[in-house]
């Protein structure tokens, strides 16, 4: 697994602020959830894998060497838990094979330091969406409606609504990128 010799930004702040591994584990839950979700795709499955990852981290906290990169260590354990979960689920439930898991995990790790900044930027970016877009995001994520049920409720086809949601996500990605690149995130 690729290990970063140094850390910066939020990750470094978290590591500096919290020197004991329990606090490091708790302060990095959002990044770990994002990491696992990018590998399994499904929120409920991601929560299960994160829970299992936390149990393993908890058991192995004595093995963590203070001063080394906690996130790299935690991602390595999370990646192993994703692979174990995939084996348990059976082949037909896999999103990715081992090679793809490794590539996605490495790509996520390179972006992990900015995860909290981007999460902060997201709140502002959502406010910039048109009212109907904001409402759609809230119903999809906050109220947990599936695209199919939302489409039925709104009298649209599921495909059309899925495309609308995709455009909203793409718009949010661009907004987050602009804000983070422009240093607008405090």
């Amino acid at each position: 697994m690729e290990r970063h010799a140094t850390s910066s930004g939020q990750a470094q702040a978290a590591q500096t602020e919290f020197s004991d591994p329990v606090q490091l584990m708790l302060s990095n839950q959002n990044r770990l959830f994002g990491f696992v979700l990018s590998l399994v795709g499904n929120r409920e499955q991601a929560k299960d894998v994160l829970q299992q990852t936390n149990l393993v981290l908890w058991e192995k906290l004595d093995d963590f060497e203070p001063g080394t990169n906690f996130m790299a260590w935690a991602f390595q354990i999370a990646r192993f838990q994703v692979m174990a979960y995939r084996q348990k689920q059976g082949r037909d439930r896999h999103v990715f094979d081992d090679e793809a898991v490794s590539l996605v995990a490495t790509a996520f790790e390179k972006r992990a330091e900015a995860f909290d900044d981007r999460l902060t930027a997201l709140s502002d970016c959502i406010q910039q969406l048109p009212d109907d877009g904001r409402s759609l995001i809230k119903r999809r994520y906050g109220d947990g409606w599936s695209v199919k049920n939302l489409a039925d409720d709104l009298g649209q086809t599921a495909n059309r609504l899925a495309v609308r949601l995709h455009r909203l996500r793409a718009s949010l990605m661009e907004c987050i990128q602009r804000r983070c690149a422009g240093g607008e995130v405090s």
């Binding site: 959830f33 929120r43 999460l119 995001i137 949010l172």
Partner: peptide, 17 residues
């Protein structure tokens, strides 16, 4: 990765950690 990170962030924003 960016798309799924956003998906995760939207889940986190609406449901918390």
């Amino acid at each position: 990765v960016d798309y799924l990170s956003l998906h995760a962030m939207l889940e986190l924003r609406h449901h918390g950690t």
